[in-house]
Nucleic acid binder design. Structure first.
Lengths: 203, 203
DNA sequence: TGGATTTACTGAACACCATTCAGTATATTT
DNA sequence: AAATATACTGAATGGTGTTCAGTAAATCCA
């Protein structure tokens, strides 16, 4: 009986169609300004249809977040390739910062917008986990070889991630204007910060 | 002619009444869930009246942000009192982290919610500037005495603030759940991070 | 094959939202 | 006392997320 398989497949295609349109519009106009009606319009279905595939707008956001984290993971896999774990850590940091600078709307979706994960804690496993473990692995390898000042693995991950996220998110919220007066591109400044920071945590 | 003075005063009182109600409701229900109608109701005026005092909801948010930064500044003044600039830097960091943990909704308003400053750059001078210069001063004093590893003042401020903001905001968005498994209170963990980080940037 | 049933979708309706503005009532000035 | 300026109202406009009775097509079962 191939019918139910086809139905399943069609359901998946429809979900993908919705999330693809949603992602596109979230990035172009921002999450808040994208309405269910707009999304429905753009895929030429009625608003009600979207609710047959997603419980609410938050669930749609959650799905798009998942894709965004996949993109970050891809960027990690592509750029953080060095055999030397210390060098790789720097690649990770710079990839992270670049990702945030180049995809500000995406970064917003992933980290800044209040997402449904606040509600349904354990239902879904965290979207960001896989990218995060990429960092944890790298840190673990550095620490195994005694290359970092940290004693505790969790503290290491916490501090490194906080620094990277802090650099990106302060910048995205324009708080850096307070200090960065000139018109120089922000990227070299943040890269310098990454380099200096990583130097400061080496033994 | 005392009439125009009284009018001025009454206008100020009305603005304060609105922002006070708005702040209260933003903190209780969040910015998104607080409507102009609700605020108007709570102060027993019509919605239209609020628009006689504030251009739109964003301007109201901006005003509330200003108050929030004042609160942070007060916390700094109260807690960061040590003569030793290094010790004071630690007090600043812990005050910052505590502030974020104890007032999550306020912290959201200040840093995370997309605020009108994105639009009217130069019109208002930045709300957070004064609190920020408190940190800059402290860092300057440390560096003047050669106590920190930084060579550039801007990089110092950027990195320290990013770390503090990263610690707080990752936590507020529950991203730390990925790594902090246990039920232990989050505060000691973040304090430890602050201590370790500040140790790592000392000469 | 033909009637019953399930599935997919619609779009109007509901209860909200931010914002505007003609109208009104009070206070001030002339 | 009349004219003007000020402060406020609340209905109206054009949006929002979400629901749900109704419809039409696809599938199932006799």
């Amino acid at each position: 009986m191939g019918i139910s398989e086809r139905k399943e497949r069609e359901k998946g295609e429809m979900k993908k169609m919705i999330t693809t349109a949603a992602m596109k519009m979230f990035l172009e106009d921002g999450y808040a300004k994208t309405s269910i009606r707009n999304i429905a319009d753009s895929i030429e279905y009625s608003p009600g249809t979207i609710y047959l595939y997603y419980k609410d707008k938050d669930e749609l956001l959650y799905e798009v977040q998942g894709q965004a984290f996949l993109q970050l993971l891809e960027a990690f896999k592509k750029n953080a390739t060095s055999k030397d774990p210390i060098k790789r850590l720097e690649q990770l940091g710079k990839t992270y910062v670049s990702f945030g600078l180049e995809n500000p709307e995406l970064y917003d979706l992933m980290f800044i917008i209040r997402a449904p994960m606040n509600v349904d804690d354990e239902l879904h496993k965290d979207n960001g986990a896989e990218s995060f473990y990429y960092l944890v692995d790298c840190l673990g390898e550095c620490m195994k070889n005694g290359l970092l000042i940290f004693k505790d693995h969790m503290q290491a991950a916490l501090q490194v991630w906080s620094m990277m996220h802090g650099l990106v998110s302060l910048n995205l919220r324009c708080r850096l204007k307070v200090m960065v007066m000139g018109e120089e591109s922000i990227q070299p400044i943040l890269f310098k910060a990454v380099e200096e920071y990583l130097d400061s945590i080496r033994v």
